[in-house]
Nucleic acid binder design. Structure first.
Lengths: 256, 256
DNA sequence: CGCTGCTTTGAACAACTTCAACTTCTGTGG
DNA sequence: CCACAGAAGTTGAAGTTGTTCAAAGCAGCG
C-alpha cells in the first residue's frame, strides 16, 4: 500500500514488482486487461515476504480473505481425509492462482504449504471482486481462470479414474514439463520440488510404485533421474504412455 | 424472448416459468439477487423444449454459446480418453449448472447427454456476462457457483485417489441422497437415472464391482435395491463406510 | 416368443499395495 | 569437518483388492 510510482517498478527489497513488468502476467490475472486498468489492479495487490519450505500460506478452516498468486517457487494444496491422511489436491507453479475453491463459502477447505522458498502476491478478494465489477476484462479473466481450473480438475479425474500407474506418472511429468516451458523455464530439465511421497499421494499411488516407475522409465530411456532432477529424454514416448492403454505389446517391450 | 408479464409465470406449454416462481432458484443462478434484477435475468434465459433420453445437450468440440441449468430430469457429462472410452465427469440434477468448464477457451471439452426426459434453461453466456457486469450479486453468485464446483471436484479427487470401492459407492449414494433432499425430493428413496455401467465408469470401477457392492450393501441392511430404485435404510452406516478406512474390523463384520 | 441389452454371479488373474530390509541423502551437533 | 540420527528413496517378496473373462439370469420390446 501507499504505492509511489517508483514502488510499482521495483521496491527496496526487490520484491515489489508491478504486474506490468512481471514475466508472468500472461498467465496470471492481468492477462487481457488494459495497461491503465492494470495500475488499478496493482494498487490492491500486496507482495509478501517470501515463504520458506513447509511454511503455510493458509490452513484448512481459515476464512478466505485473499487469493494468492505464485510468483516463484511452488506450493502444494491438500485436504485431510476422515482419518487424517493428507490428500494432495494440486501443485502450484509460478503464475498460478490459489484459493479459488474457497469463494463458495468463504473458507478454505485445503491447506496450502510451500514446497521450497516461494514468493507470493496476495490479492484481497473483496477488492478484487469490486474491481472485477468495474473492469469487464478482469471479470472475464477471473471466469476464465476458474473455468480453466475446472477443466484441469476434470482431466485429472479422468486420470485417476481410468489410468494405470504408468499413465498417471507420465501424465504428471508431461504436465510439469508443459507448465515449466510455458513459464519460460526448461521443459526438458527441471527440479521436482515435491517428494516422491507427495507425487505418490497426488497420483493415488504408493510411494514404492512411484519409485519403481521412475527407475523403469529411466531404464526405458524415457527420462533421466537424479534425485530431484529430471531430464526428459523422450517426450514422444512419454506422450504415448500417457495416452495409450491400447497397445499393451508396445508398452511391455519398452518398459521391461 | 419477447416476454410478456404473463409469460414470466407460466406459458402455454407449461415450461415458461420465471426464475422467481421456480422452486430451484435457491440453488441456481438467481440466488441472492434482488427481485427486480431477477426480472432482467429472466429476460435472457430461454426455456427449451425438453430433451429425451440419450439426446445431446452439447457435444465435445462445440463452441460455448450458453450455460445450461437443469430444471428437471438429469444429465451426464463425459469426456473421451485417448482410446475413445467414455469417462463420466458428473451427473447433473435439477438446479445444477452445466458448461462452466467451457468458459476458459470458449469450447466444450465434454459432451452432455440426457439420462431421462429432461428440461433445461438455456442462458446465453455473453448476455449473462454483461448482466453480471452490472449486477454485483450476480457476479458474486457466478463466482460462488464455479467455486463450489471446484470444491466438489476436489472432494471427488480425494475419493478417486484414496478411497476403496466400498467408500466410493457409499459416497456416491450419500451425495445423491443429499442433493435430492436439497431439491425437495426424498433423500431416502430415489431412482437412479443412470445405468450401473455409468456409475461404475464415474467411480473408476468395473461394472461387476458395483453390482457386487449393491448386493453386499443390501445384505448388510444399508440399502434396499430394486433395479433402479434405491431405498436408503441406514444412512449412519453408509456415512461410516464413506468416511472410514480405519476400522477394518467393523467393515468386515458388517459386510460379509 | 424370442430377441437384445443390462445386470448379476463365479472363478482366475493382474496390478498395485503392504511389509520389510537396505541404501542414500541431509542436516545437526560435537 | 566428521559422525551420526533421522528422513527419504529404492528394491524384493508376499498379499489384497479389484479386474477380466465367461456364463447365466432378467426385464423390456418388437
Amino acid at each position: 500500500m501507499s504505492e509511489t510510482p517508483e514502488s510499482k517498478v521495483i521496491d527496496l527489497k526487490g520484491l515489489q514488482i508491478a504486474c506490468q513488468s512481471c514475466g508472468l502476467h500472461e498467465l496470471c490475472l492481468p492477462m487481457g486487461i488494459h495497461p491503465d486498468e492494470m495500475d488499478r489492479l496493482d494498487t490492491i495487490i500486496k507482495r509478501r515476504r517470501p515463504l520458506h519450505r513447509n511454511d503455510f500460506l493458509y490452513h484448512s478452516g481459515d476464512t478466505l480473505t485473499s487469493l494468492y498468486a505464485v510468483r516463484s517457487g511452488s506450493i502444494k494444496t491438500y485436504s485431510l481425509t476422515g482419518e487424517g491422511e493428507e490428500q494432495i489436491i494440486g501443485f502450484h507453479l509460478p503464475g498460478e492462482l490459489l484459493g479459488l475453491d474457497a469463494i463458495h463459502d468463504g473458507g478454505h477447505h485445503c491447506s496450502a504449504r510451500a514446497l521450497e522458498t516461494t514468493s507470493i502476491c496476495e490479492i484481497p478478494f473483496e477488492d478484487l471482486e469490486s474491481l472485477a465489477q468495474e473492469i469487464p476484462g478482469l471479470q472475464h479473466q477471473l471466469f476464465r481462470l476458474m473455468s480453466k481450473e475446472l477443466q484441469s480438475d476434470e482431466h485429472f479425474m479422468l486420470v485417476l479414474g481410468k489410468k494405470t500407474s504408468e499413465e498417471r506418472l507420465s501424465n504428471f511429468l508431461i504436465s510439469l514439463s508443459t507448465r515449466f516451458s510455458q513459464r519460460g523455464f526448461s521443459g526438458t530439465e527441471f527440479n521436482l520440488s515435491m517428494s516422491r511421497n507427495d507425487i505418490a499421494n497426488y497420483l493415488g499411488l504408493a510411494v514404492e510404485t512411484v519409485s519403481r516407475l521412475f527407475t523403469r522409465f529411466q531404464n526405458a530411456g524415457l527420462i533421466q533421474v537424479n534425485r530431484k532432477l529430471i531430464a526428459i529424454k523422450n517426450l514422444e514416448g512419454l506422450n504415448e504412455l500417457a495416452g495409450a492403454k491400447c497397445k499393451k505389446v508396445d508398452k511391455s517391450i519398452v518398459l521391461r
